[in-house]
Amino acid sequence: MRELALHILDIAENSVAAGARKVLIAVEEDLPKDRLRIVVEDDGRGMEEELLSRVTDPFVTSRTTRKVGLGIPLLKAAAEACNGSLCLTSTVGKGTRLEVEFQHSHIDRMPLGDLAGTILTLVVGHPTVNWVFVYRVGKAEFTFDDNPIKQELDGIPLTEPSILAFIKEMLREGIAQAQQDGRARE
């Protein structure tokens, strides 16, 4: 995977697989400290200590269709190659939190990629999950919570063409605005 947004999609799919009702995705570009931080936090079923300690190992997966899971190990290796780290914490019955950090300016750091595309895909593809997306660049912040949108829609599918266009634009504008404001204030 060549963009962090694809890794975010992959990690978020784990949250859905863990039965999460609400997933928070936070992306923070801390430019003064030269760090890029991504947090994915869910209220899914969580993991036992034993599985948690093995989950960053490429030869562990909870999936039954195939025995090798590479999502988290790949992301961990990518972070460690960029003066960063990956931290996974979990409580059974409460949820799981993944935090991954990179040196923002590191030459090997993957680009963030298409964040709007990732969030749109998750919101549309898993409509029963409440998705909250927070994007910070410096002091600028964009928050997207799909709950008010779904409440307003009252059962109309998110794939209704005009609604789809609306959400896509909302994400694109918000992300672009945060990037513009955050970098302007540097």
């Binding site: 694809l6 799919e13 895909t121 593809g125 409509p127 789809l164």
Partner: peptide
């Protein structure tokens, strides 16, 4: 993800109501 985006794009461009798109794991 690009496949998903292409599907959503066609829904938008061709104004297709009544199409539900979901995603699933492996």
């Amino acid at each position: 993800r690009e496949t998903m985006k292409a599907i959503l794009e066609v829904i938008e461009q061709e104004n297709l109501s009544d199409v539900i798109v979901r995603q699933t794991g492996n």
